[in-house]
Design a binder for these strands. Structure first.
Lengths: 153, 153
DNA sequence: AAGCAGTTGTTCAAATTCGAATGACTGGGT
DNA sequence: ACCCAGTCATTCGAATTTGAACAACTGCTT
């Protein structure tokens, strides 16, 4: 099959996507590490667990929602557990399972980290765009994510 | 200062950005590794060097355009050099400098890898969006990238 | 109730990433 | 000519990531 190369506009879109993603992640990562001593994956784990509430979350659910490998998650949760921000408990309904919970210290750490993180997210992405472009961006990327999610990617 | 939390739309945009980025990178990474035996960073190095042509590129220039650390680049270029896809030569005008060049084998590897890569990029991002949304996306992310570039991030 | 394919989470080794430290060199000012 | 702050690329160790292999368990089927 003949390759359909990217035209000028398409290439610009791809390039911008690459550069923006890298730079935004870098900016966020740096802020969190510096001000809260957390990596972005770690911060995301805390957020997901906070949202989940008392019930906690299974490791697999957590790994899927973070789009990371299971082994990577095991490692990161281990790190957070060492610091006392997270607990791992056996699952009642499924002996194979493990569910992670936010500790009180974890909730505190999240509360303290959140304002600086949100500020950086605004600075790097949200506040750069006007309402309309942001809406289109959200819509477009939601669809992109959804497609890949369904593909099993 | 009082924190300006993200409203519903803003949060949706940030979430979509996170998920889409992760999934797109993952998809691209997987395709390249599987079909061409290259990591995405490695592929990008080959592309930049191909564009640069005979003159090659300084390590620092390369690192900046790839948005990676210099030490990370040294490692990856080392890997490519081992495989004979890239050469490192002393810089004539600056004895500290090193410039990287694409070898004939590197050019071949790139030619062979490109079609599959482009196809995956289309599938994951470009072809998911209509012309208008793609244009807005490109425009928006170009600005996001530019801001962070200027900030030194 | 026994088998079995599939799921769950961890462990392991290998690959990659980063930042700090290093050694070499540049360029301009004195 | 000499110094000195700054740049260049690499090296090093530590942290992180990944996939494959593994052991334990589920729940369906027979």
């Amino acid at each position: 099959m003949e390759t359909r190369w990217l035209d000028e506009g398409e290439l610009a879109a791809w390039t911008a996507f690459l550069e923006a993603s890298h730079r935004v992640f870098r900016a966020v990562e740096q802020q969190l590490k510096q001000d809260a001593g957390l990596s972005h994956p770690q911060y995301e784990i805390l957020v997901k667990l906070a949202v989940a509430g008392g019930a906690g979350l299974r490791m697999t659910e957590l790994a899927e929602s973070l789009i990371t490998s299971k082994s990577g998650l095991t490692y990161q949760v281990g790190q957070l557990e060492k610091r006392g921000l997270v607990t791992r408990d056996a699952c009642l309904s499924d002996d194979r399972g493990v569910s992670a919970h936010l500790t009180e210290a974890g909730a505190v750490a999240l509360r303290e980290a959140a304002p600086g993180h949100v500020a950086r997210v605004r600075e790097a992405l949200i506040d750069v765009l006007d309402r309309d472009r942001l809406a289109v961006l959200a819509d477009a990327l939601t669809e992109v994510a959804a497609r890949l999610r369904d593909t099993g990617t």
